[in-house]
Amino acid sequence: MYDESCLPRIGSNIRLLRGACQFNQQQFAERIGISQTHLSNIEHNNVQVSLKLLVRSANALDCSLETLLDRKAAAEWAQAHD
C-alpha cells in the first residue's frame, strides 16, 4: 500500500537511478522531454512529479514505477546497475 510519505523520495530516487545509468542531468532531461532546470527541481523535491513524467522516467531508466517510488527498490536497482 502507498501513502504520501513516498512522494518526497521520488526526486532523490530519480537522481540515484539517473546516476547509476551514468546520465547527467541534461542528458536525462532531454530523454524525458523536460528542461535541465525542471529536472533539478524534481530531484531536489521543489516540484511535484506528474504520473506522465514518472512513466517517461521509468521508461528512460528501464525500471518499474515501483523502483521510482520505493527507496529500497531504487537502491537495489542502482546497485545492480553499477
Rank of each mutant, 00 (worst) to 15 (best):
E66K: 15
A74E: 00
N45G: 06
L69P: 10
K52F: 11
V49M: 08
D70R: 11
K72P: 00
V49Q: 06
Q48T: 05
I42D: 00
S57V: 01
L51T: 13
C63W: 01
A73F: 10
S50N: 09
H44M: 11
D62F: 08
I42R: 07
A73R: 12
T67Y: 13
V49N: 09
V47C: 04
L68C: 05
Q48P: 02
N59P: 06
E66R: 15
A60L: 03
A60R: 00
T67P: 13
N41A: 05
E66G: 14
N41D: 07
I42C: 09
E43H: 08
L68W: 05
H44Y: 08
N59I: 12
L65I: 07
T67N: 13
L39G: 09
I42Y: 10
H44F: 05
V55W: 06
Q48W: 04
A60S: 14
K52N: 12
Q48L: 06
E43W: 08
E43T: 06
T67R: 05
L69K: 07
L51E: 08
S57Y: 04
E43L: 06
A73K: 14
A73M: 09
A60I: 01
N41Q: 08
V55L: 10
L69D: 03
N59G: 10
E43C: 07
V49W: 08
K52I: 10
A74S: 15
S57M: 05
V49C: 11
L51M: 12
I42Q: 07
L53K: 15
V49K: 11
R71S: 14
A74D: 03
R56V: 03
L61K: 02
A74W: 03
I42H: 11
L61H: 03
A58I: 00
N59Y: 13
K72I: 03
A73C: 14
N41M: 06
S57P: 07
L61A: 03
A58Q: 01
K52R: 13
A60Y: 05
L61C: 02
K52M: 11
S57H: 06
L69A: 12
R56H: 13
N41T: 01
H44P: 03
V47Q: 04
C63T: 13
V55N: 06
R56K: 13
D70Y: 12
N41L: 04
L68V: 01
